[in-house]
Structure formats: structure tokens, C-alpha cells
Design a protein around this nucleic acid. Sequence first.
DNA 1: CAATTGACTCGTACGGTGTACGATTGAATG
DNA 2: CATTCAATCGTACACCGTACGAGTCAATTG
Lengths: 231, 231
Amino acid sequence: MAAKGNGGQGKRPQRIEAAAQAGRKPGGEPSLSLERIVATAVELLDAEGVEGLKMRRLADRLGAGVMSLYWHVGNKEEVFDLALDTVFAYRGPPPTGEPGDWRRDVVHMLEDWRAIMLRHPWSASLLPRRALGANILGRLETMSEALSRAGVADADMNVAIWSLWNYVLGATVTRASFALSDADQAAGQQRLSVLGERYPTIERTRLLLDSDWDGTFRKGLDVLLDGLSRG
Amino acid sequence: MAAKGNGGQGKRPQRIEAAAQAGRKPGGEPSLSLERIVATAVELLDAEGVEGLKMRRLADRLGAGVMSLYWHVGNKEEVFDLALDTVFAYRGPPPTGEPGDWRRDVVHMLEDWRAIMLRHPWSASLLPRRALGANILGRLETMSEALSRAGVADADMNVAIWSLWNYVLGATVTRASFALSDADQAAGQQRLSVLGERYPTIERTRLLLDSDWDGTFRKGLDVLLDGLSRG
DNA sequence: CAATTGACTCGTACGGTGTACGATTGAATG
DNA sequence: CATTCAATCGTACACCGTACGAGTCAATTG
């Protein structure tokens, strides 16, 4: 009730069907379209971050008036939803290798997912507060199928799926957040000076300093997969 | 560079020290104070969510003028940072039981953390984009110590810490996001109708429907702890 | 052909936001 | 009393998302 959280598409009269026949500039550009808007939104998010996405700026990049966007989009929230789900499209594992290798498939999908979130850091911070789009659901389905093939019983499926899901989401969110907060060196240095006194174990293990994020991610994932497939 | 990401406190001239001697209302209220501001911000966040926190509304609740806040706070971002870290304070495990039970300590802390995030759902969605405050670092330290006691070598510590951390963060973020998006029933129903065709495995395991979140969380955590303590 | 429709674009305007700036208050200090 | 300084607050401004309605053109219809 607090959040508007519009899961399905709204019931605006606009843009029921049809595309591209009227209203192009004298130059001859393809005019506006939902695809172009979303693609540009992703560009802008990549370049400027979540708070850098303003409707006016988006319209500028598209060479259009601000209000023209609202024929296609409804509101700004919807732009976020669409950008998020667009970015999470999954092409599936490469066909090389044996077809039955469920573990390879799962790892590939999760690492692909993580790579996307690291390439588009805004997506990690946006995911928590948006409903799941088709592409995200598709990834869940893909993972469920693979685990089913791996012999995980339906009764244990929820634990398995959510454990993996949570792990990847958490890993990426953490990683993205650290990459950002380390950007300002001054604060980092200041943090270090306090570290030795108040957080001795953290400092000893150099937890925040030279974590091998990729390796750590893989190892933790292995632990999880071992435990889950063992039943 | 995209985000301002002010890790440490700023260098505003205001509020270096001192508190409470001047400027109270004729009534005799304790006037303004950083503690009161942050506490009220948490109240407001609990009641209205992230986008419900406006400086004017916060000032109203405090019976103060809007700009009075800015003597204490710097900007709105800082209010978020402070509210977040305040909420994550940890009192430590209950002293009952044997002192050496590392696993109980770790589980207690993680479940406490998760409970907090579920009680304050905004905190889960805010955590991804903010730097770690003192209380969050404290939790990392507590966990490191417990794992060290458990016999985890320093070399393996990063994997252990981050795996657990990621798991809890992901689990809570996911949980909070689902609680919100299921609030609008209409969209949920619509999603179900599509589910059977496009996502058969999801539907068969009733993944999104009757997940036992608490039980699932515990089981996944056990898998992880088993694997990690085994080395 | 002219008239109508409807997809699409966009300028203007409005209410709401965070906050810069300077005026104001009142206790503490000389 | 005069000065200082912590603290409060009203006004004003730039910027935001977007409601509203007018404008443009291709396709359709008579």
C-alpha cells in the first residue's frame, strides 16, 4: 500500500498496438518508440546512475519533447521497470559441451546475471524495489529446470532456488556498493585508520581491502551447489 | 563519481560539539537534536516508505521549521545514512548458553539482522546504495570473530564472511521485495495466469506462492554453514 | 476531392521538492 | 551593556514529474 508497485502494465489508452507511421522529423529519424526510449534510458542510467535519469534529459537525448515520452510510457516508474527487465534478458548457455551438464548451466546463468549487474550497477540497487519482469522470471524458470534435472526434489526446490538467488543478489549488491563507496578515497583512508582499533579481525583478514571478488563468488557458489545437490 | 557517496561525515561547520542549551520553544520541549531527527526519520520511513520521507514532512513531525533540520544534518542523503546505520545497531547474542558456541552466535546475529530488515523494509532497499556505517562494520567484525573461533583460517575468511553476508542480504532483499509486490493482488493474479504456460517449473513447485520464507532461510543458512565450517 | 479520424508530438503551466541565503532569537561571555 | 555564537526559521529559487490541451500529419471515409 505504501508503494504503488504496478506489477502488470497499466490500463492507459495509449500505445495499445501499432507503431511508426506518423510524426517523424523533417530529417527522417525513426521518431520515438518504446524500444528506443528504453534503450536510451539504459544508456543514461549507465552513464549517470539512478538519480541521473530525468525525463527532460532522456527526452533531450532522444531529440524529442519531454511530454512526447508520456504517450509511450505512462510515468517514470515504468521507465525504470522496463530498463531493468530489458537488461536482464538471457540468451541461454552456449551449446558447446554436453547437454546434460546442469551445474555448468546454472553457474553460467548466475555468472552472466552477476556480470550484468556489475556492468549496470543501477540494476542491483533497483531490483529490490521492483516487481519481477518476464526476463527475471525466465531466469528463475531456467534455474528451476536445471536443478530439477540435477535431481533436486520439488519439495527441496524452494530452498535451492532461493539460496542461489539470494546468494547472487547479495554478492552483486555488496560488490557494487563497495565499488562505489571506495570511489571516494578520502573516506576510505579515514575508515582504515579507525579499522585497526575497532575492527581488528576485519583488518587482520584484510576483508575490505583486497577481496578477490570473482574468486570468492565462485568458491561460495561451489559450497552452495555442493550442499544443495547432495540433498 | 556518478554518486556523491559521502562515506565519512562532511566538513560542515555546524554541529561540531555541544547540544541543548538554547532555542527551545516556550512550551519546553527538548528542541531539536540529531538523535530526535534520526529517530523521527525512522518512524516516518516505517510508516511511509522511502519515497514518503520528505524534509517538510519530517520537520512537521518534529514541530520545527524545515530549514532548522539543516543545521543538524547537511542534506537529505545524510538522513538516509543515519537512519540506516541507527537501525542496524546490534546488542550481541544473549549470554545464555555456552560461551563458545560460535554457530549459535552467527545464526543469532544473522537472524537478528534479517528480522530488522523485515521490520524496516526500506532498509533492505536502501542498503545497496549506501556506504557501510559503524554498526554494519561492527556486525562484520562480530561475524569474523565467531568464524575465527570456529576454526576458519584467515585465508578462507573472505569466502566465508562474504558468502554468509551475501546470503542474508539477498534473502532479505528478495523477501521484502516480494512482500511489497504481492500487495497488489490484481497483478499477482494476472501473473499467475501466465505462469502455467511460460513458467511450468515455477508453477509446479509453487515457487512464488507459498514459499516458507523463514524455514527456507534457515535451511539455506545451514547448508552454507556446514560447507564453510567443513573447510 | 474534402472531411474526419486517430496516432503521435510538444509547449505551457502547476504543484511539490531539496536547499541557499540571510534575518532572527536568546543564552553565555566579556 | 556589547559581543559572540549556537540554533531556528521564512522566503525564494531552481528543478522535478507530469496534467492539459493544442498542434501535426497519414490513413480512412464520404
